[in-house]
């Protein structure tokens, strides 16, 4: 049964990479059910993240946000800060797609704080870029400029010319 769970997860990921998102969702839901059966929180977290990702490409941003929120909750239970940062980043972007910029900013600031704590400059740069866009969407040019400058500084430091 445990191996069956892993197989479902792998099938879900394969379909996802092929762009077959409805099939990916179906397999990841099976994976999630088996993870719950075993009380395997790490696998449950993975299934939620994968389901969130697939729903982004299905255009179901509201559903994606729910899966990412659950993944965030589990990453906190698992005390995995890198994963927590990843979940916050996904939530920030998803709320931007939902045009809820205040919530997007809230999650991007959480992502930024963890990236700073972990010394992840690339993550910090991404967070600044996202905050720059979210503040611009809100018409807050002063804050947007602040994060644009930080983004530029970090991009130069990490050699990201793009």
């Amino acid at each position: 049964r445990a191996a069956q769970g892993r197989a479902y997860g792998n099938l879900g990921n394969s379909h996802y990479l092929l762009g077959n998102f409805p099939k990916a969702v179906a397999f990841h839901k099976q994976r999630l059910a088996i993870a719950k059966e075993f009380g395997d929180k790490a696998a449950e977290k993975r299934a939620h993240s994968n389901l969130g990702n697939a729903h982004i490409f299905l255009g179901r941003f509201d559903v994606a946000a729910e899966y990412f929120r659950k993944a965030l909750q589990l990453s906190r239970q698992l005390k995995d800060q890198a994963v927590e940062a990843q979940c916050c980043y996904s939530l920030g972007n998803t709320y931007t797609l939902l045009q809820d910029y205040e919530k997007a900013i809230d999650y991007h600031l959480k992502h930024l704080a963890i990236a700073q704590e972990l010394g992840d400059r690339v993550g910090e740069g991404r967070a600044c870029w996202s905050l720059e866009d979210a503040y611009m969407s809100l018409g807050n040019r002063e804050q947007a400029l602040y994060f644009a400058e930080k983004h530029l500084e970090i991009s130069q430091e990490v050699g990201d010319q793009d």
């Binding site: 990921n13 696998a43 490409f57 255009g59 972007n93 931007t96 991404r126 996202s130 720059e132 969407s137």
Partner: peptide
């Protein structure tokens, strides 16, 4: 409408490009 919106936000577009190849592996 949701799909059109994302085209306007560079940082989100970049995230989605990365996301296409991102799977949380078993």
């Amino acid at each position: 409408v949701q799909r059109m919106h994302l085209i306007q936000v560079d940082s989100v577009q970049r995230w989605m490009e990365d996301l296409k190849l991102m799977t949380d592996c078993e």
